[in-house]
């Protein structure tokens, strides 16, 4: 349910994102999901990759500011309203979401959530029997 996300601090420079991707490519690390949050001066690259520890290692070696953060990964039904239903439960429990992204993995729809209170969010997941997905399932 908790899954390791690789976060990279990136200044707004042309070609900078691709430098990260090139490092991962050279090291045969696969990216399952990727999202960038941007501000006027810099961005935060968030990725789910096939080998988070190795990704951190190789990126650090290339002087990138990188860290592992834990996020929640849930599996959604591929039908309208399934994501809304999950967020309703979180709202009811007064859990705030810092950021969220979703992607397809094979036939599955995956929702990645970074709640402000991870333990409380896990309680909600367990209480409502929400389907979660592990790093292993994502072959990370």
């Amino acid at each position: 349910m908790k899954i390791r996300q690789v976060s990279v601090f990136l200044e707004n420079k042309t070609g900078h994102l691709n430098q990260v991707l090139a490092v991962l490519a050279r090291n045969k690390i696969n990216i399952n999901a990727l999202t960038v949050a941007d501000s006027s001066d810099y961005g935060l690259l968030r990725m789910l990759v096939s080998n988070p520890m190795q990704a951190v290692e190789v990126l650090k070696a290339e002087h990138f500011t990188v860290r592992i953060h834990e996020v929640l990964s849930l599996e959604m039904d591929a039908e309208p309203g399934s994501m809304s239903h999950i967020l309703d439960l979180f709202t009811a429990a007064d859990i705030c979401i810092e950021y969220v992204y979703a992607f397809s993995f094979g036939s599955k729809s995956i929702l990645i959530i970074r709640p402000n209170d991870c333990d409380k969010a896990i309680e909600v997941v367990n209480l409502n029997n929400l389907k979660s997905i592990s790093e292993h399932d994502l072959s990370i």
Binding site: S7, F9, D38, S39, L44, K60, T65, E98, R114
Partner: peptide, 15 residues
């Protein structure tokens, strides 16, 4: 320069 140990995962924390 951002300190690697202070690397966070939200823009808000950076701001």
């Amino acid at each position: 320069e951002l300190d690697e140990a202070k690397m966070v995962d939200t823009i808000r924390d950076l701001q």
